[in-house]
Each structure stands twice: as structure tokens, then as C-alpha cells.
């Protein structure tokens, strides 16, 4: 029987929890295929750096890549709203209802269309890791409201997200992960967001700043993707293709649970061992962020028909889902808070 080997060039360092999860994804494929498809997961920069991954997979330099669609928003703005429709597309989708849009609301079809017809690249795309939300991040001093936030220099993700912060009046700067800690030490920035508690712990921002805001709106949802070179994909036998589809679905659940636990452990460690204070994001930031998001997204939708098609699809889906789902989220928030308030769970 023919043997296949799939190298996955990722956009994360080997110590990231998402790197671990990809290895689990790869192991599962190897086992399910009875060893016919071998996988190798490569850290950021091993063959190419993060922002070159799509081009590398398209050309076949590596058989597969791992990143987030918003990494390609320089090639087309709609890339930004597949993995990370900011503030739940400005219509309040949470991570689970966003995935519901992907699977039940026509999102996945648009996603495939995006690569095949809009970018015209040779990739077979899969969503594998729902990892939202990204924390609002680390702050030198606590903030009470939006006005406090506006006085700071803040490291935000680049692209449309950065534009939304600008629209709100926050002076956002973009810089690669490796520069965040040195810049924080030098006072070049006063606040910064990175990925999530577990990965932030590795970056070491807690050694510089002690104020941590877990509730971020800019990447309230975020889904990692695996891109497979189309030529390589087409050569795979039908059953192995189905195995990859199944492993991708399995990885969705696995990430969801892994994320909850690993991040919770990291938060516990940050609080108890490193003296980090966890704050709630001030409420006036929510409204301002949603407003700025809709302004910026509308601006893009006016310029590009495909962007509009994706955004409209998300907004229509939200009209159905958000009224119901928000009630359910209130249930869980209420339940958790009751457990904390009654002392059933220690704060």
C-alpha cells in the first residue's frame, strides 16, 4: 500500500498548546489510516515563517499548513472574518454560535469558495481548532473605562482588528510576538494582547505587567485552520480523505475542552504563583467596540461584494441564533456566578 507523508508547517512555536493539539490531530490521522499517512508538525519558521504559509502550501513546498484565516487578510479583506469575525461579527456571535454558522449557516461553503474562487489557491481548507476568546490582554496599570484605555499605547493584532481599535480612539500598534516583551519592558507600549492564558504564560508578559483582562472582544472567536495542498489532497485515497475530515471534526471538540482546562490552569498559576490580578473588562468598552466594529465592517462590505456576502450571511444567522443563545449564555454565567458567590467554588 502506498505511504503518504504530510508535513504541517504551523504559525506557532513548539511550546504552544495549539502545537500539542496539532500533534494529537496528526497522531489520530496516523492511527486511523493504519500508518498509511504519516504526519510531521513543524514550528513557526521551520520551513517558512508564519505569514508565508498559505503561499508555501499553495505551491506545495509543504503538504499542509496551520494558521488562521485572518493571516491572509492582506490578500483579501474577507479572510479576516472567517476565523475571527470581530466582536462576533458585530452581532454578538460567541465561539459556539460562530461554529454553528460555519457548519449550519453556510459558513463552510463560503470558506471553501474563498480559497478556491476568490484567492484562487490550490488548497483544501479545514477548520480544526476553536480557541476564542483571546484576552483583552496585559496592562501596566488597571483601567476603569474606555477613556483610560484610550490613553494607552496598545499592541493589537494587525489588520482590520487594529483598524477597529483606531476607530474607537485607541492607539493600537502591531508587532510580532517576539518583540512584545522587550517593547513592554522598554515602555514602548503600555498594554498588549497575545493569544490566551496558556500561551501568554510562555511569552512571559506576567514578568513585566500584573494586570490581566480575560474578556477580549477583538478576537471573541478564533478558529485555527489546516490548509492542505490540493494536488496532495487529490492524490490521497478516498478513505484517507474521510479520515482527515473526521480528525478535523474530532479536533474541534478536543480543542474546545483542552482550551478550557489548560487556560484555566494557566490562570490559576498566574494568580497564585505570579501575583497577577484578573480584572473584568469595563462595560463601556463593549458598546464602543461593537459600534466601531460595525462601522469598520460596513466600510469593507461597501467596497467588496464577497466581503459583504460573508458578513451578510453571519448577520442573518445571528438574527436567528443570538436572541436564543444569549439567554443560554446568561444561564451559564448566572450558574457559575452563583457557584462562586455561594462559596461552592472558591474565588
Amino acid at each position: 500500500q502506498p505511504q503518504y507523508k504530510m508535513r504541517i508547517q504551523t504559525a506557532v512555536p513548539s511550546s504552544s498548546i495549539y502545537f500539542d493539539l496539532l500533534k494529537k490531530f496528526g497522531d489520530r490521522i496516523e492511527k486511523m489510516s493504519g500508518g498509511r499517512l504519516k504526519t510531521e508538525v513543524l514550528p513557526d519558521g521551520a520551513v517558512v515563517p508564519a505569514f508565508e504559509i498559505l503561499d508555501a502550501v499553495d505551491k506545495g513546498i509543504v503538504e499542509a499548513g496551520y494558521a488562521w484565516t485572518h493571516y491572509w487578510s492582506g490578500k483579501h479583506p474577507a479572510a479576516g472574518i472567517f476565523s475571527n469575525p470581530m466582536a462576533g461579527a458585530g452581532v454578538g456571535l460567541d465561539q459556539l454560535s460562530h461554529i454553528a454558522w460555519l457548519f449550519e449557516g453556510g459558513g463552510y461553503d463560503l470558506y471553501k469558495k474563498f480559497y478556491a474562487e476568490v484567492l484562487k489557491v490550490n488548497v483544501e481548507p479545514f477548520f480544526v481548532q476553536p480557541m476564542g476568546p483571546d484576552p483583552l490582554g496585559w496592562f501596566k496599570n488597571p483601567i476603569k473605562n474606555l477613556e483610560d484605555f484610550k490613553k494607552l499605547k496598545y499592541r493589537s493584532p494587525p489588520g482590520i482588528t487594529g483598524e477597529i481599535f483606531k476607530e474607537m480612539g485607541v492607539s493600537a500598534v502591531a508587532m510580532p510576538g517576539g518583540e512584545i516583551v522587550p517593547a513592554a519592558q522598554r515602555g514602548v507600549i503600555d498594554a498588549a494582547e497575545w493569544i490566551g492564558p496558556a500561551d501568554d504564560l510562555n511569552l512571559g508578559l506576567h514578568t513585566v505587567w500584573k494586570n490581566y483582562y480575560l474578556q477580549g472582544l477583538h478576537q471573541s472567536t478564533d478558529v485555527g485552520e489546516v490548509l492542505i495542498n490540493k494536488k496532495f489532497w487529490d492524490k490521497l485515497p478516498k478513505d484517507i480523505q474521510e479520515i482527515i475530515r473526521g480528525a478535523a471534526m474530532a479536533s474541534m471538540t478536543e480543542t474546545y475542552t483542552y482550551n478550557v482546562y489548560k487556560n484555566a490552569l494557566a490562570v490559576k498559576l498566574l494568580r497564585e504563583k505570579h501575583g497577577v490580578a484578573i480584572h473584568d473588562t469595563p462595560k463601556d468598552i463593549y458598546a464602543a467596540f461593537v459600534k466601531a466594529t460595525n462601522t469598520v465592517l460596513d466600510r469593507y462590505a461597501a467596497k467588496d461584494p464577497f466581503f459583504k456576502q460573508v458578513l451578510d450571511s453571519q448577520r442573518q444567522f445571528a438574527q436567528v441564533v443570538v436572541p436564543y443563545w444569549t439567554k443560554i449564555l446568561d444561564l451559564y454565567a448566572g450558574l457559575g456566578n452563583a457557584a462562586l458567590d455561594t462559596g461552592a467554588v472558591k474565588k
Binding site: 505569514f51 493571516y71 492582506g74 490578500k75 494587525p158 487594529g162 483598524e163 500598534v173 502591531a174 510580532p176
Partner: peptide
């Protein structure tokens, strides 16, 4: 594609 630099606020 009219590609822009995504890592920049200026794009």
C-alpha cells in the same frame, strides 16, 4: 490580488 501588508496598521 492588490495584496496589502497585513501586519501593519497602515496596510
Amino acid at each position: 490580488r492588490g495584496e496589502r501588508i497585513v501586519t501593519s496598521p497602515w496596510m
